[in-house]
C-alpha cells in the first residue's frame, strides 16, 4: 500500500527534525495532573504532565518511548499548546485529530497546525494514526483531569 513517495510523505523532514530534537521533552514541576498512556498494539508509551495557570496551558512536559511519529508528535504538541488558552489548545487538538482520522481527505490549516501539517501523510497509514495521536490523547486526558481538579478546588 505504500510506495517510496508515500513513505517520504510520511517521514517529512519536519517530523524527523522534531524526532531528533524534541521540544519540551522531560517531566517537570509544577503540574496538576499526570497521565500514562500506552498504545497496546505496539507498546509505545507516554507519561505526560499538564500545568495550568488559570485558563492557560502553562506547561506540557512528557517522557515518551516510541517511534519517530509518536515522538515527533509529542514535540509538536508541546509547541502548539504551551502558552495557549485551554480552549484554543483543545481546538488545535480537534483539528489535529480530524487531520489524522481524515484518511488523507482533510486539508490541514497551517495557521492552526503549524508544523503539525507535516503529519498529513500519516493519515494514509492507518496503523500509524495511533502513534501520532498518542500524546495528544494523553494531553486531552490530563488537561480534563486538571480542569476537574481546578473546579473542585
Amino acid at each position: 500500500m505504500a510506495d517510496a513517495s508515500q513513505v517520504d510523505a510520511l517521514y517529512q523532514e519536519i517530523i524527523l527534525d522534531h524526532y531528533k530534537q524534541k521540544h519540551g521533552s522531560g517531566l517537570r514541576d509544577p503540574f496538576e495532573s499526570e497521565v500514562h498512556h500506552v498504545n497496546p498494539t505496539c507498546g509505545d508509551e507516554v507519561t505526560l504532565r499538564v500545568h495550568l495557570d488559570g485558563g492557560t496551558v502553562s506547561d506540557v512536559s512528557y517522557d515518551a518511548v516510541g517511534c519517530s511519529i509518536s515522538q515527533a508528535s509529542a514535540s509538536v504538541l508541546n509547541d502548539l499548546v504551551v502558552g495557549k488558552p485551554v480552549d484554543d489548545a483543545f481546538a488545535t487538538l480537534d483539528a489535529f485529530q480530524a487531520l489524522m482520522q481524515g484518511k488523507g481527505e482533510v486539508e490541514p490549516d497551517e495557521d492552526v497546525l503549524e508544523d503539525g501539517i507535516a503529519f498529513a501523510g500519516v493519515a494514509q497509514f492507518p496503523a500509524r494514526v495511533k502513534c501520532a495521536l498518542l500524546s495528544w490523547m494523553a494531553f486531552k486526558d490530563a488537561t480534563s483531569q486538571a480542569l476537574t481538579t481546578q473546579e473542585d478546588a
Binding site: A2, Q6, V7, D44, C67, S68, F125
Partner: peptide, 12 residues
Amino acid sequence: VHPHDVAQLLDS
C-alpha cells in the same frame, strides 16, 4: 531507529 519505523521502511 525504532522498530515501527524499521517496519514501515521495510514495507515500502
